Each structure stands twice: as C-alpha cells, then as structure tokens.
Computed example of a mutant assay.
Amino acid sequence: MITRISITYGTKQILSKLQARYPDRKLLLLDSSNSGEKLALLDVSGQESVFSSPIHYDIKLHRGTTDWQGFINFIYLDNLSPDDQKVFNSKANHFVTTDPMPTGMRSIYFMKDEKNRSNNIILSTWEQADDFSVWKRDSSFQPFNYFLSAQNNYHEASYHFFKPEEK
C-alpha cells in the first residue's frame, strides 16, 4: 500500500511531458473543467516525487481499490481545532473500518497535508460523478457534515481523467 500521494498543477503541455518522461510512474492527468484548462497531475506511485512543485499528502486511512478510474473528488478541511481533529479522526476511522462503502465508491483515502498537519483531505474515487452526489446526501456521509463549513475552510475539487479533444 502506498503511504503518500503527490499532486501538481500546470498546463497540458508541461504535465504531458512529465508523464512521457516517467512512463514507469503512475502519473494520472486529471481535468477539473469541461474545457481542459484546469489540469492536475496526480502521482499515485508512492515513490519520491518527480514534480518540481509538489503538494504531498500522507495517507492515514484507505479502503477500496487502488485501481484509479472514474470520477475523483477531493474534500479539503483546513485547520481543524484539536478537539474537532479528534472527532474527525474517529468518524473517519469508523467509516473506513466499519461502514459499508456507498454504491459506486471505488476507494476512499483520508490524508494529511505533509506541510500543514492540521489540513485534512478526503480523496474518494467513484464509478461516476452522480454516485458521489448521492453519497453527500446519504446518511453514511452525515457524520462529516459538521466539518463542511467555512469555519473549517471547507472546499472541494472534482476531477475526471483528461481526454484530449478528438479532431
């Protein structure tokens, strides 16, 4: 099992060159837009990063497949108070070890930002975006609702795999 994921952002040209330069690495080109303008490169190899400006996430809990396909969502919760951090850790641990996985969920990762340990990231992979939307309204997501506030600097980023436009 990998213990760290790295991500970097850039243009299609730069990120594609990195993929070509390291064909033996598991570097996934992700797109967060409909126009192919907001790209990220996710390194799920678990090896030392080859990015010049990486953001590293340490994996604390994981469940599900390591086969990266479909829809990917990041939920960021920054600067939880020490008490909220304990509650979050408990809820995350319970979800990963006890609760059944929601329909369409392929995997879930609970991670910490390597540089700012008070930043938490929930990375989930899904068969399709609609499955993620359904989960956010489901009772299995309810324990996390408390943390989805401006107070916790909550924000999300969703991606699909980059597909070049066909000519």
Rank of each mutant, 00 (worst) to 15 (best):
K60F: 10
S90K: 14
T65S: 12
T8Y: 03
Q69V: 12
E127P: 04
N79S: 09
H94S: 13
D130H: 12
D58I: 07
S35I: 08
Y109Q: 07
A92Q: 11
L15F: 11
Y9I: 04
G70H: 11
Y9L: 12
F51C: 10
L15K: 04
R25W: 01
I108H: 06
D138M: 03
L77F: 06
L80S: 05
T11W: 14
P54M: 03
S33V: 11
D84L: 14
D131R: 00
T8S: 13
I72V: 08
S33A: 11
D58F: 04
N89Q: 07
T66G: 13
N120M: 11
I75E: 02
A40C: 04
T66Q: 08
I59T: 00
Q13F: 10
A92F: 02
P82H: 00
T125M: 13
N116C: 11
F144V: 07
S118F: 03
D130Q: 01
Y109G: 04
E48F: 08
L41Y: 06
N120C: 07
D99Y: 10
S45P: 01
D84E: 03
G46Y: 05
I121K: 00
N145M: 14
T98L: 06
I59Y: 01
S52L: 09
F74Y: 08
Q19L: 13
Y9T: 13
S33D: 06
N34G: 13
Y57E: 02
A40T: 09
F147D: 02
I59A: 06
D58Y: 10
D78I: 09
D31L: 06
D67Q: 15
N34M: 14
